[in-house]
Design a protein around this nucleic acid. Structure first.
Length: 417
DNA sequence: AAACCGGGGTT
DNA sequence: AACCCAGGTTT
């Protein structure tokens, strides 16, 4: 039984002990047609299916490649952070590389942030890496057992206390439940994209489980279906089913182990449960980046280290757009005004897409001898010269890497002036 | 509650 | 271009 947790700070979410379904102490109501008996059957079917069909994923093994129960907390943690908003296939190679470089929490805590970010390069959402790094430092500083208490591997032993995990940056209710259920066999629920879909379909929940009362409902469901034993594997089974069988479109209900229990399957509601996410409007932003080249050196501009986010390679001022002006045109126009040079449209145009924003960055490459023009170095106080070789050591996003590679190419001819 | 993360992959 | 993804944080 999980201990009752106190909500002593604003980041706390309610972590209830698992409700006793038979005593009816929960406030999550079983949908029509469901009973404690059918719920128990559902647990058994999912666990059996998971035992037979789970994928062989690296974080389900320890560093020596062995299947263990429970699993290695550090490996589970890192994998869960990488898997945020990121597909399994994309994560696997990054996970292997990360584990080889930083095999335990102490190694992570002692690593330079630049190295951590470098290992993260290409995964996106780089704040995850900064949070992971900061959390590792916090764990090593304050929450690792002493050698006497923890034995030989005490240096690398992560705590099993939900209160500690809940306080770590980048750890929300999902990662807390995922790590503690898998690594310490604690009965804590998880809700993410897969289990949300699976639970909504099985129990025929028609409203959006992502917002409002739906969020409360789906966490209640995840808690209600959770078995006392093997909670980690059960949580995994929900996600595995969502990934392999109960897919967003065209779920394979004919091979689903719990199709007989599923209300969405019974009523042919797979396509409307859960409802599609409402689309987000895209805001286009024109920005201008400036790189000055002097022979084989590049003058890059970085934001201050305390900017609160991953450092960018270049300052990219926003370019105000005229009414109805194309974002690319605006970027080129602003680049002309900023540098005083006649810039050919599209010479170096990078478009970065994000969920709600699309950035068009016109990257201007100038020879050093031309910096006496209108280009004002004011905003670029942190600029420094680097060699093309050094560029490879900078952790940047993939689109930026593409530009850096192009800029560092000695065969590349200046496209301006 | 909604926006943000100046992501990435698949279709 | 739309949609999805083993979310968390900030406003």
């Amino acid at each position: 039984m999980a201990p009752a947790l106190h909500a002593s700070n604003s980041r706390c979410f309610p972590l209830h002990p698992r409700p006793n379904l038979e005593r009816g102490t929960r406030n999550w109501e079983l949908p029509e047609g469901w009973s404690g008996r059918t719920l128990a059957g559902l647990r058994t079917k999912l666990l059996n299916w998971f035992d037979a069909h789970q994928r062989d994923l690296p974080w389900r093994r320890d560093a020596a490649g062995q299947l263990t129960a429970p699993r290695d907390a550090y490996r589970v943690w890192v994998s869960e952070v990488m898997l945020q908003q990121t597909t399994v296939a994309a994560v696997v190679p990054y996970f292997e590389r990360f584990m080889a470089a930083l095999p335990n929490v102490r190694a992570l805590a002692e690593a330079d942030e630049q190295r951590v970010l470098k290992l993260w390069e290409g995964l996106g959402y780089y704040r995850r890496a900064r949070h992971l790094h900061a959390a590792a430092k916090e764990l090593v500083a304050n929450h690792l057992p002493t050698s006497e208490k923890g034995g030989a591997d005490a240096d690398h032993q992560l705590p099993d206390d939900p209160v500690v995990w809940e306080s770590l940056p980048g750890v929300g209710r999902y990662i807390l439940g995922a790590v503690l259920s898998q690594a310490f066999d604690r009965s804590l629920p998880i809700v993410e994209a897969n289990s949300l879909r699976v639970l909504a379909r099985i129990f025929g929940y028609r409203k959006d489980p992502r917002e409002g009362e739906g969020k409360v409902w789906v966490w209640g469901a995840a808690e209600a279906v959770l078995p006392q034993k093997r909670a980690g594997d059960f949580n995994q089974s929900l996600m595995e089913l969502g990934a392999l069988i109960c897919t967003p479109t065209a779920p394979a209900c004919d091979t689903c182990p719990v199709s007989a229990n599923c209300i969405a399957n019974r009523d042919s509601l797979q396509d409307v449960i859960p409802p599609k996410k409402k689309p987000v409007a895209i805001t286009e932003v024109a920005e201008v980046g400036v790189v000055i080249r002097d022979g084989d050196r590049l003058l890059l501009c970085q934001r201050p280290a305390d900017a609160g986010r991953w450092q960018n390679m270049w300052e990219v001022p926003h370019a105000p757009r005229a009414e109805g002006e194309d974002v690319s045109t605006a970027a080129v126009r602003a680049a002309k005004e900023l540098t005083g040079f006649d810039i050919e449209p599209g010479a170096e145009l990078l478009t970065i897409k994000h969920g709600v924003t699309r950035y068009a960055i016109t990257l201007v490459c100038l020879e050093a001898t031309h910096t006496g023009g209108k280009f004002a170095p004011g905003p670029y106080a942190d600029a420094k010269w680097v060699s093309p070789t050094d560029l490879a050591d900078y952790p940047v996003s993939s689109p930026q890497r593409k530009l850096m590679t192009a800029l560092a190419d000695p065969k590349r001819q200046p496209r301006l002036f």
